[in-house]
Design a binder for these strands. Sequence first.
DNA 1: CAGGATCCCTTAGGATACTG
DNA 2: CAGTATCCTAAGGGATCCTG
Lengths: 120, 120
Amino acid sequence: MAGASRRGPYICGIDAAMDVVSGKWKGLILWELNAHRVRRFAELRRGLNGVSEKMLTQHLREMEADGLVHREVYPEVPPRVEYSLTVHGRTLNQALAPLGAWGSERIQREGSEVVDAAGA
Amino acid sequence: MAGASRRGPYICGIDAAMDVVSGKWKGLILWELNAHRVRRFAELRRGLNGVSEKMLTQHLREMEADGLVHREVYPEVPPRVEYSLTVHGRTLNQALAPLGAWGSERIQREGSEVVDAAGA
DNA sequence: CAGGATCCCTTAGGATACTG
DNA sequence: CAGTATCCTAAGGGATCCTG
């Protein structure tokens, strides 16, 4: 599968986590599913403004394979599929929180000087 | 510049943080510099087994531009350059810690069943 | 509605050779 | 030693069309 996770031998935890999170929309999908608990395909598409059907499907499938997302199919017509986070998805979201905070701070001070506390 | 950070408008903190961390070796560089405090180019290369000179330079330059890494050049011969983390680099490392822990746990249970606590 | 299939473009990543 | 320059491949991402 194209774009699937490596699942290869990892050097460290960051490595393994990044492997699972890398992908243009995965962070947002996590965010969306965490905020709404349950979302349908079309709802997610609207939430992730600009994502193509292919990419959304692909990311969703990878995240499902990685055990982050649960996919519930209702055998109805018209078809209905609901996505939600698994417990792993939720713990990942929590682990991501500090990083999100760091990023937010970074956005705040965008443009200000960059400190240097290197060797000095 | 190829592979440079977007620095574009970010949707959320995760987005901004991921932008700065994405890159095959950045996590490891952060790790190396955090562990050793100061590293020379060749030392980093050895630490990051398999990285090419080009990629190491490229990543280092991007991280420098992002204010994560400090580059100290000693005008000697033979040339000597020392890399270290800035305070931003160190806080990023701290923000990354929970994610690293999550990834480590994930590696541990590799192969075990993937829980499903979705809609149920 | 949800998504599979296909084609195409852009980007990340890497090998190698050369230089201050 | 610490890069820079160049070339190449692989993977990520996306548009569009088609189907259960």
